[in-house]
């Protein structure tokens, strides 16, 4: 679909909604100034310029994706980092793979922390087990009647602290990974 100058700017304003107001206003005014200059050179130049910008959606994405990655890196917030990678995942294999890896990382971290809580509530059924029925080992909760006969639990009273440390280390590593992915995506932009 082809836009007129005003339609393009109106649509662009909507598409840039995620940017801070001042940045959006600045970009819109610069785009309008460019189109006005082209229009002054004739209809053909204006049409060429509008084609050059592409669709407002794509043009806006070039700024929003980058701003989102940048803000995420500055804030260091795990959620923002993850979301900014997810937003880029549709168009970048690196971002997609990164998103999967980061998600798995947090899933593991969450599981470790969950085991800390469960260990405090169900100490007998929670632990690191080995035995004839669990090969090569089982980490977690043996539901129902607890571990089958012949099973040994190895962590004992250390289960909760070990799981807390494992959760912490996994969280830090995953956060580090997400920062690396975001920084890498920014560099490729």
């Amino acid at each position: 679909m082809t836009y007129s100058k005003d339609e393009f700017l109106k649509r662009l304003r909507t598409c840039l909604g995620a940017l801070p107001e001042s940045e959006r206003q600045d970009l819109l005014e610069e785009t309008a100034s460019h189109l006005d200059d082209c229009a002054a050179q004739g209809e053909a130049r204006l049409t060429e310029a509008l084609a050059g910008f592409g669709t407002p959606e794509n043009y806006a994405r070039a700024f929003i994706e980058e701003a989102r990655l940048r803000n995420a890196l500055v804030s260091g917030s795990p959620g923002q980092l993850l979301l900014s990678v997810l937003a880029a995942a549709g168009r970048s294999v690196v971002a997609f793979a990164g998103f999967i890896l980061i998600s798995i990382g947090y899933l593991f971290a969450g599981t470790f922390f969950l085991l800390v809580v469960v260990e405090l509530v169900l100490p007998a059924q929670t632990g690191l087990f080995t035995g004839p029925d669990v090969q090569p080992f089982a980490l977690g909760i043996m539901a129902g009647d607890g571990p089958p006969p012949g099973t040994t639990e190895h962590l004992g009273p250390f289960m909760a602290p070990v799981m807390a440390v494992a959760g912490g280390v996994t969280t830090v590593l995953t956060l580090l990974l997400s920062r690396l992915v975001v920084a890498g995506l920014l560099k490729r932009h």
């Binding site: 610069e30 050059g52 592409g54």
Partner: peptide, 30 residues
């Protein structure tokens, strides 16, 4: 912007357009 784009378009091997020059300028400014 437009002046930069025009100057770069003269050397046709760059193949820049409105859609690529402004994000590039933004990146350099940031």
């Amino acid at each position: 912007g437009l002046e930069i784009l025009n100057a770069l378009s003269r050397g046709s091997s760059f193949e820049v357009s409105e859609g690529s020059i402004y994000p590039l300028l933004k990146r350099l400014e940031t």
